[in-house]
Amino acid sequence: MVAQGCDAEAAARGGDIPHDHLFKVTGLSSNNLQKLAQDAAPVVSDFEAAIAATQYGRFNVLLLACSLPAFWSAVSVTSSVSYIFTRAKCDMDLSLLDMGTVTAITYAGMIMSAMIWGFLSDTLGRRYIMVWGFLGAGVLEVAAALSQSFAMLLVTRFLCGFL
């Protein structure tokens, strides 16, 4: 008997949610939320059925073509150091510790900026961040290739990883 009273109170309180609060939270009025709850029938499908229904086509090829420059940029940032080392070892008289530091500083930049880029891409938009990030990383890659001192090489490699 007590449980029925609690259920009745909960139902009564559920209907008394102020309209302005619902609108602030969801952007919908309580009437629209009730309609959506009644009309929404869950559609259940597994991954294989979805892929079979959509098939493979021009969209998949274009998506792959659009993602290749991002892949090339990511590979370039992490592996271009090996091409720089062949010349920088002689020009800057780098030791094994120095070469290891240059390689590691790229990853340090990646680790330090991961949370920042995640937040910015969610707030400003992924496309905007990716376009300017890849452009900046390309410019810094050229600057790293043209660096004349160990300090400049470290800074440019860190910034490449940061972007």
Results as ranks from 00 to 15, higher is better:
residue 123 T to L: 09
residue 63 L to H: 05
residue 153 L to T: 04
residue 54 T to K: 10
residue 141 E to F: 04
residue 45 S to K: 11
residue 11 A to Q: 06
residue 121 S to W: 03
residue 64 L to G: 05
residue 67 S to T: 14
residue 44 V to S: 11
residue 126 R to C: 07
residue 81 V to H: 03
residue 127 R to A: 13
residue 77 V to A: 13
residue 38 Q to F: 09
residue 63 L to G: 10
residue 26 T to N: 07
residue 140 L to E: 00
residue 130 M to T: 11
residue 62 L to T: 01
residue 100 G to P: 01
residue 21 H to V: 15
residue 70 A to M: 12
residue 39 D to R: 08
residue 90 C to M: 07
residue 7 D to N: 10
residue 24 K to L: 09
residue 135 L to P: 00
residue 28 L to C: 10
residue 64 L to Y: 07
residue 51 I to F: 09
residue 95 S to F: 05
residue 131 V to Q: 09
residue 111 I to V: 15
residue 151 A to Y: 07
residue 150 F to W: 06
residue 36 L to N: 14
residue 15 G to Y: 01
residue 89 K to N: 05
residue 109 G to V: 04
residue 96 L to I: 10
residue 77 V to N: 06
residue 94 L to T: 07
residue 15 G to W: 00
residue 47 F to I: 15
residue 147 S to I: 03
residue 54 T to E: 11
residue 113 S to M: 04
residue 155 V to D: 02
residue 47 F to Q: 10
residue 81 V to C: 08
residue 133 G to N: 04
residue 70 A to D: 08
residue 7 D to V: 04
residue 149 S to N: 09
residue 161 G to V: 00
residue 90 C to L: 14
residue 1 M to A: 13
residue 25 V to K: 06
residue 149 S to K: 04
residue 143 A to Y: 02
residue 77 V to F: 02
residue 104 A to Q: 05
residue 147 S to T: 06
residue 135 L to C: 12
residue 6 C to T: 13
residue 25 V to Q: 09
residue 126 R to N: 06
residue 53 A to L: 12
residue 11 A to R: 09
residue 152 M to D: 07
residue 39 D to L: 11
residue 32 N to P: 01
residue 68 L to K: 01
residue 160 C to R: 00
residue 3 A to W: 03
residue 156 T to A: 07
residue 36 L to Y: 13
residue 29 S to C: 11
residue 127 R to N: 10
residue 90 C to P: 00
residue 48 E to F: 12
residue 32 N to W: 13
residue 18 P to S: 15
residue 148 Q to I: 03
residue 139 V to K: 01
residue 107 Y to A: 09
residue 85 F to V: 07
residue 109 G to W: 02
residue 36 L to V: 12
residue 83 Y to D: 11
residue 129 I to Y: 03
residue 151 A to V: 14
residue 75 V to W: 13
residue 91 D to Y: 00
residue 29 S to R: 11
residue 151 A to R: 02
residue 129 I to T: 11
residue 75 V to P: 01
residue 13 R to A: 15
residue 55 Q to W: 07
residue 93 D to G: 09
residue 53 A to G: 10
residue 127 R to K: 15
residue 54 T to Y: 04
residue 6 C to I: 12
residue 46 D to P: 03
residue 27 G to D: 07
residue 97 L to M: 12
residue 12 A to E: 12
residue 129 I to M: 15
residue 141 E to A: 11
residue 75 V to Y: 13
residue 80 S to W: 01
residue 83 Y to W: 10
residue 35 K to D: 15
residue 149 S to P: 01
residue 37 A to L: 15
residue 136 G to S: 06
residue 68 L to A: 14
